[in-house]
Nucleic acid binder design. Structure first.
Lengths: 195, 195
DNA sequence: GCAAATTAATGATTTATTCAAG
DNA sequence: CTTGAATAAATCATTAATTTGC
């Protein structure tokens, strides 16, 4: 019995951690080359194929959204429920939008470093984005046709590799319908120059 | 009908997000004053009490440990099964220790920088050494698994030229309209795994 | 303590949507 | 209006974790 063929990939803890870290760092839908690179690296920790990476990001993103949605709906439920306890018309709890100031933590919040960080984070979150998560605008963006690239094969298409543009060009930046993507709309800023 | 009083706290998405960020940033068992502060802030987003915060951290910590345990055990199993086709004694897979610090980078999930972050991550990984690919020959034969085929095809062959030093950029790979073959030939035969 | 039975997670596939080029 | 590319949603299927009766 030459070991059960194990029909599916099972990530090692290292692989998982790295993938998660990448996800946290903003990667959502890696393009072909990214997938290749990631795969190459992760293969150092265990057997893995490109499709595993691809699927992992797909699933993780999807389930993340799912989780968010669930939270939101639950939240809405709660809103109805809690409305009763709030007779304050003058100071309404920020309804998912405009959660500005108020978070001027007296600065003496916590005492450890971690706390400091947490605080920073908090302000960040506060400042930017917690608001408006309902604006689902799925926009697609063409440039991570990793599949096409794969199909094109490594034969000739492999990029003019050694041709670094000025800054980094790269990121796919796609907005998944939930505004979660880190990437700002690809419109103006980091115009990917696409060679 | 005065609505069901809801016997227990139900975090709003904002509350949850903030708590999770704090957790990621290192907070595990906040003390009384921390709890008070946190509670004060979170109460801005909805009803919440100190004990909710307390319990949340307790539970989250516990479940986090559980998750870790789980991964580890799975990993050990895998070790037996996979043993890695890496015959390189010179390049032993860094076992859980050299996992780059990004695992500690607590809080930097931003939006614009996310790309940069992701990039750094990738570059880091790159720098560590692409080393072996393994999976030179997948034991399974996929007949209709286009993705696997594609991926397996040029696995690890990452452009020889592109010597990924530090800031290698991921080429956008905008396929110039090549390959327009009749893609979806995969599922053709209906038999979908006869449940 | 232990396996069989059950449940939860999550990898892998398939189907539906979306956008825009033609 | 049709079609292709990309991807999100839904679903299927397998593996790991828990529970349960002994």
């Amino acid at each position: 019995m030459p070991q059960a063929p194990s029909t599916r990939w099972c990530p090692t803890p290292e692989q998982l951690m790295i993938l998660e870290e990448m996800y946290r760092s903003g990667i959502r839908t890696p393009n072909a080359s990214q997938i290749q690179q990631i795969t190459a690296h992760l293969s150092y920790y265990g057997k893995i194929e490109g499709k595993n990476v691809f699927y992992w990001f797909q699933n993780h993103k999807a389930r993340d959204r799912q989780k968010l949605r669930r939270r939101l709906s639950r939240h809405h439920q709660l809103l109805h429920q809690q409305l009763h306890t709030l007779d304050e018309a003058s100071a309404p709890p920020p309804p998912l939008s405009s959660l500005p100031h108020h978070l001027h933590t007296p600065s003496q919040l916590l005492h450890q470093d971690a706390n400091q960080q947490a605080m920073n984070l908090l302000s960040k979150l506060e400042a930017e984005g917690i608001s408006e998560m309902a604006t689902t605008s799925s926009s697609m963006n063409y440039d991570n046709d990793w599949m096409t690239m794969m199909m094109a094969g490594n034969t000739g298409i492999i990029p003019p590799c050694c041709k670094p543009l000025k800054t980094l060009d790269l990121f796919p930046t796609k907005s998944t319908g939930l505004r979660d993507e880190c990437s700002t709309s690809k419109s103006s800023s980091c115009s990917t120059s696409t060679n």
